[in-house]
Design a protein around this nucleic acid. Sequence first.
DNA 1: GCAAGACATAGATGTACGTGAATATTTACG
DNA 2: CGTAAATATTCACGTACATCTATGTCTTGC
Lengths: 116, 116
Amino acid sequence: MQLEITPVQAVACCSPLARDPLSEADAERIAPLLKALADPVRLRLISLVASHEGGEACVCDLSDAFDLTQPTISHHLKVLHEVGLLDREKRGVWVYYRARLEALDGLAALMGGTAK
Amino acid sequence: MQLEITPVQAVACCSPLARDPLSEADAERIAPLLKALADPVRLRLISLVASHEGGEACVCDLSDAFDLTQPTISHHLKVLHEVGLLDREKRGVWVYYRARLEALDGLAALMGGTAK
DNA sequence: GCAAGACATAGATGTACGTGAATATTTACG
DNA sequence: CGTAAATATTCACGTACATCTATGTCTTGC
């Protein structure tokens, strides 16, 4: 269940960085999203999930790619989930994660478009 | 003078996150860029610089927008400069910063394009 | 040359964060 | 039920980081 407002929803509500000065409030809402992405392990995790067949992957698919303990992977997935970059669905014993592509697109729209 | 390799150059050398799994090496090079951006103050700083007239701004233009001391602003600008997101040019007493739009576009290309 | 202004650096401090070990929770299966 | 497997949570620890105060460096104008 996902009832609370996640930082992901902050992405869609402002013009590109290079067009207008970002407000303090918007910056405070967007920074956590980037902070969640600003880790090598989490970058690879979201990339693995997003590029995995079917657009989703379970933890078992993911943890093999890293030289980290299972709780650490679980922690990183939680961080990405809490900001709304990953959706989480439990099916049986396994937990499947799915990337929120709109969120990534939102961030891309924020940073890009400067070459216009 | 800018002779060393900055993290900014790591952006252009990989396909979008959602297309192929990001390699460990690429992730290690890109994460510092996002980490530099993942701060409310630095987000606003780069936005202020990029959206400022002429595409550049001196520290004096920037520090007024924040309730922080001058050394703190200077520190944040240094962080953005060190990863290559901001160019730095001293003219007289003033130091002008300019956003590297290619870097921002590179990041945007990395995260977006998922709606294809 | 000296004083003033713009910006950077150094040192110090509290907080946030990445990681692992140990343990808990949940589900399937016999 | 009870055991095994998949994932999450808790606790602890070392490091990184944001911020401030104090000080340094450099440029301009008198």
